[in-house]
């Protein structure tokens, strides 16, 4: 009981709670939209969730590319951690979108370009997570998933610009509108608070998720080597020369 002291960081939990509270207060006090009424408040969680999905998959792409370049497993762990959180945010975006669509559009779901492409993105990244379970060889797992992690990023611009490139039911971007934000200033500020709050929560979750990835890799390595204490050394890259 010396090597593995169960040292774990607590600050990410606190940061998350504070950020979550701020988002809630800001989005409940902003004036409602004249057309949609209180329903417009759903925007302050739906839009940040979608943005964080984009960001998370962007980080997965970066981590994957860095792994392919440096062959350092820490990049693979970052890519994996971000993909898992990104899948959660994508799922959240879809479900919140459905809750918003039913009272506004009148349906839970329709096969419009934005919705269909988002669903495809969700399942492709779910596939990324499944692909990681095909092998216990850390280097092979990292290589396979890094290739998918880089390729899958093309979906992000496809999802984002689908509402401009094709005819869709989903409205065009409000904040990143070429003609400037088509929204009252109070709403823009609230949306920015919500996006930054979600970003802070993402960063906090990443710290914990990467900590988990390090531990999981250490468990795998110590199971494979099965001799000698490995705990506490799990951060180092395992030596699996010639292993397949």
């Amino acid at each position: 009981m010396t090597a593995n002291e169960h040292r774990t960081t607590v600050w990410p939990w606190i940061v998350m709670a504070v950020a979550g509270f701020h988002v809630f207060v800001a989005s409940m006090t902003v004036p409602p939209d004249a057309l949609q009424g209180q329903l417009s408040r759903i925007m302050y969680v739906h839009v940040p969730a979608a943005w964080l999905a984009y960001l998370a998959f962007g980080i997965t792409m970066l981590g994957s590319a860095m792994y392919l370049w440096k062959k350092d497993l820490k990049w693979d762990r970052r890519a994996h951690a971000s993909a898992e959180i990104g899948v959660m945010f994508t799922g959240m975006t879809i479900v919140l979108g459905m809750v918003w669509a039913k009272p506004t559009w009148g349906v839970w779901w329709t096969w419009d370009a934005r919705l269909t492409l988002t669903a495809i993105m969700f399942f492709v990244y779910l596939g990324y997570l499944a692909l990681r379970r095909t092998t216990d060889n850390l280097d092979m797992r990292a290589k396979r998933s890094a290739i998918l992690g880089v390729l899958a990023i093309v979906q992000v611009p496809l999802v984002h610009f689908s509402v401009i490139w094709w005819r869709s039911l989903h409205q065009a971007p409000t904040l990143l509108n070429p003609e400037g934000p088509s929204m009252d200033t109070s709403m823009v500020i609230t949306l920015l608070i919500a996006v930054s709050g979600f970003t802070v929560m993402y960063v906090a979750m990443m710290f914990k998720r990467i900590e988990l990835s390090r531990l999981e890799d250490a468990v795998l390595v110590s199971e494979q080597t099965s001799s000698g204490p490995i705990a506490g050394h799990g951060i180092t890259s395992p030596d699996l020369t010639g292993g397949s």
Binding site: A34, Q36, T104, G106, L169, Q171
Partner: peptide, 14 residues
């Protein structure tokens, strides 16, 4: 289905 654009305004007149 109702189709709305990307505007959000507190005042209907805007």
């Amino acid at each position: 289905l109702v189709m709305h654009d990307e505007q959000y305004r507190a005042d209907a007149g805007d």
